[in-house]
Every structure is written in C-alpha cells, then in structure tokens.
Design a protein around this nucleic acid. Structure first.
Length: 336
DNA sequence: CGTGTTTGACCGGCGC
DNA sequence: GCGCCGGTCAAACACG
C-alpha cells in the first residue's frame, strides 16, 4: 500500500455514504446503504428536537474520533506494507531478478505424474512445472533460495475470507453465487462435516490464482460456507455479462473472458486493464510525464482494489449494516 | 464436438 | 515410518 493513500482525504473513513460512489468503483452494498442513509435524512432529520440534535452531535464526534483512530491505524498498516514491499523488492533484485529460475536444480519435481508415468507413450508436457502450476502468481514463483523464501511464502499466504450464504435446504447443490465465474475441479467429503466440500477455481481469467471452497455448515445445512483464498488479479466481470455458474454441460461462451484478444496460452499474470495501460505508459518513452501518469494509475488502481476488497468483505458489510441499522432505529420517529 | 462436471486416484503435510 | 486427511489431478462422463 502506498503511504499516499493514507493521506488522501477521499480515502479517509468518514463514510460519506450519502455521496454517490466513484463511477469506476462498483460497490453495490455501499450504493444500497447510501440510498438508505439518504432516506433517513430526508424522512427523519426535520423531525429532530434539540436534545436529539445534541445527541447526534455527540455521536458524530464519537464517530469522528473513531475515524481518526482508524485513519492512524491505516497509516501504520500502509507504512508496514511499504517496508515489506521494499524488503521484497530487494530480495527479488538480489536473487538476480530471474522469475523463470523456479525449478532450480529440479526442485519442482514432476512427481505429480501418475498413471501416465507408467505409460511411456504418454506425451510429457514440455514444461511440467508450468503445466502443474498454471495459476501460481508470478510473485510466488520468484523464490530461488531455501529458508528465507519459505518464510516469505508463509508470510504472503493467500488472503482467506469467508462468506455465509443461506441456501434452500431442498437444493443439494453447492452453489454460492458471486460476481465471478468459477470452475469446479474437485469435491471431497471431509472428516468434520458429512456434507461434501466443493473446490472451485476462478475461470474468468486463466491465470487467476483465486480458489473457492464451498461446504454446507455442519451445524445448519441450510447455510453454505464459501471460503475464498487469494486475490483476483483481474477486474470483476462486466455486469452485463450473465452469470453462468455451474451450468452443466457445454455452453460455448461460458466461462470465457470477454476480451477477444485474450491469450490462448496461460500467462503467469494477466494484468488488470488499467495495469496494462499503465505498463504501456511506462514502456513508452516519456520519462517524467509517463512516470507521473503511471504513479497516478497505480494509486487509482490501489484505491479501486481497496474499495472492492472492503465491499466484498462480509464482516465489513455486516459491521456497516449493523451500524447503519442501529442509527436508523435510533432515528426512527416511532422510538419513544 | 467442445466445454464443464464428476469422481476415484494420487500427493504431500502433519501428527503419532 | 506409518496412517490419516485435505487438496488436486485428470480420465470419463454429461450436456447442449
């Protein structure tokens, strides 16, 4: 994270939910809540009596204080991130900066081969390690030395988030709909839960490392628990594109990126369109202007990612919903 | 025929 | 070292 972020007023946690969201930032939950807030203000605020206004002011002060604390926490986190990023960059530079040196000394063994191993006629892939880990992000493949690298990998474990979805008990499927397209690659019955767990990969981008596990709750099998691992290295699918999750059988256009120039061969990292543009800008010759433009794009992209991450985080949504519903109840004319 | 799903086999980590 | 268990692979199958 860029320390610049924590200094931006637009990113402070003032939660001006009554304002329209940024056009490039698709945050449905925030939009909905914004509508709610507007409704509250229009309907109830004119009815306020002075003591209530005073109470609201106190509340506002309290929220401002909390906002300030959160901003400071964000600043600290940003500083830590920056330090880590610098450390990582140094390590990459020291290792020769050669991302393709993954299989140094054959550390990635082709031991994953099974039946075909006994069948000599089976054609072996030209690059077994690449074939084996098509979704591995580039930054996870740059490890060349033993111990420190292991530690980095542990520290950089993919982000895990959970989402709980109420499902129709009569529906036996393990379908948790969200804004991405998923391809099922496995199912397993686990020890602690009689209901099977389904494994999905993001199929929107071929190189996207995100995985999803879906399993019914052991306590209440009307609840589906979706566990997301990793972060998408691409934007969300356009809303116009119909969701075609788990459509059984063939649908010729399903689960394909809309981009016609999408590469056929898997690439280690398929950048977000903005990132692509940014890379092109950097590649083009203007040293100062291009660098400034690239920096601006990076910041914008980070802000976008933060907004997306927050709005996708169920705990954040829950906390926001709780806070807002509490406020609505407090402001309700039926109260007292 | 192309693409997604199912499912049994396999691999590697971990605890004993 | 052994067995258990979660995660992944890939052949077989289903579907439009």
């Amino acid at each position: 994270m860029d320390p610049w972020i924590s200094n931006q007023p637009s990113l402070s946690l003032d939660l001006h939910v009554g304002l329209p969201p940024l056009s490039h930032c698709q945050a449905p939950a925030v939009v909905t809540l914004a509508k709610t807030k507007i409704l509250v203000e229009e309907n109830f605020l004119p009815l306020k009596k002075d003591p209530e206004v005073a109470a609201l002011e106190t509340e506002l002060q309290r929220m401002s204080e909390e906002n300030r604390r959160l901003s400071e926490a964000l600043k600290v986190a940003a500083a830590e991130y920056e330090a880590l990023r610098r450390q990582y960059t140094e390590m990459v530079a020291n290792s020769g900066g050669n991302p393709s040196s993954t299989s140094e000394g054959g550390s990635v063994s082709p031991s994953r081969k099974r039946k075909s191993e006994s069948l000599d006629t089976a054609p072996a892939p030209a690059h077994p390690h690449l074939h084996q880990q098509p979704g591995l992000a580039a930054d996870q493949m740059e490890c060349t030395s033993g111990e420190p690298c292991k530690r980095i990998l542990e520290e950089c474990k993919p982000k895990v988030s959970k989402r709980y979805v109420h499902a129709d008990p009569s529906d036996l499927g393990l379908v948790v709909k969200d804004e991405y397209q998923w391809r099922k690659y496995g199912q397993k019955v686990t020890k602690d839960n009689p209901c099977p767990r389904a494994y999905f990969r993001c199929s929107f981008a071929p190189a996207c490392p995100v995985k999803k596990k879906v399993q019914r709750s052991a306590d209440d099998n009307t609840i589906l628990v979706a566990t997301y691992e990793g972060e998408h290295n691409h934007g969300q699918p356009p809303p116009a594109q119909p969701q075609q999750h788990y459509s059984s059988g063939a649908s010729k256009n399903a689960a394909k990126p809309p981009s016609p120039q999408a590469p056929a061969a898997p690439v280690p990292h398929q950048p977000h369109p903005q990132q692509q543009r940014q890379q092109q800008d950097v590649a083009s010759g203007e040293p100062v202007g291009a660098a400034a433009a690239a920096s601006e794009l990076i910041r914008r992209n980070l802000a976008e990612q933060m907004a997306m991450t927050l709005t996708r985080d169920p705990s954040f949504k829950a906390a926001l919903a709780t806070a807002l519903s509490g406020r609505i109840l407090e402001l309700s004319p039926t109260k007292n």
